[in-house]
Amino acid sequence: MRASGEGFTHSTLFVIPHLPMALRAMGPFLSRLRERSMTLLPADQLCMQLPDKVTGLFLVGVGIAAAYGGSLQPPVPGQQIGPEVFPMVVGIGLAICGALIALGIGHRFEEEAEADLAAHSDQPAPPERRSKAAIGLKVLLPPALLLFYVVAVDRLGFVPTGAAMVLATALALGARPKLAIPLALVTPVGVHLVFYKLLRVPLPDGLLPMPW
């Protein structure tokens, strides 16, 4: 699921610069379509927001795959109902929902809820002028750091790995080194003390064993 989600963003990012060229060739019909897609995806919007058509069709695919995968499950001998029924029911349901979403049904509920929420809260709009790709990479930083943790923690040990993660997150959020460095030095040690010493979670020592 994750990989395909990223795939969509990358392919949209890849396609957008090539759109004008294709449009000139394909006439006014497509330019109308482009106007529509641009209203769906205003430039200042944050990344990873996809048109309903894309998410809907993706869900149709997932639903069909799940139903098919479910139908391949080996039956329980001597019984009509086994592990195949539930994924098939859910998969078909998901495919139907995906089709409805792709057709834009129920979109109005969403607009109303958004308008309601916008009227009630005052979240400041991001004043960013960075490119969408830059924000996209920053958004993916926390999960990337977790994968780094998985790869590195046994070799480096908990405290160094944690310090690197804290430092990276703090700097990405715009912290000055004066804040980020002390934070990166103190936080992993504190977390290690609580989880290793008090809660006895086996965090790996690696290069830097703690004295407790």
């Binding site: 993660m165 703090a170 804040l179």
Partner: peptide, 17 residues
């Protein structure tokens, strides 16, 4: 910038635990 890094680390340790 001081709170979120701590949360990332707590997420990792908590899930591992």
């Amino acid at each position: 910038a001081a709170i979120m890094p701590v949360i990332v680390l707590l997420c990792a340790v908590g899930s591992f635990a």
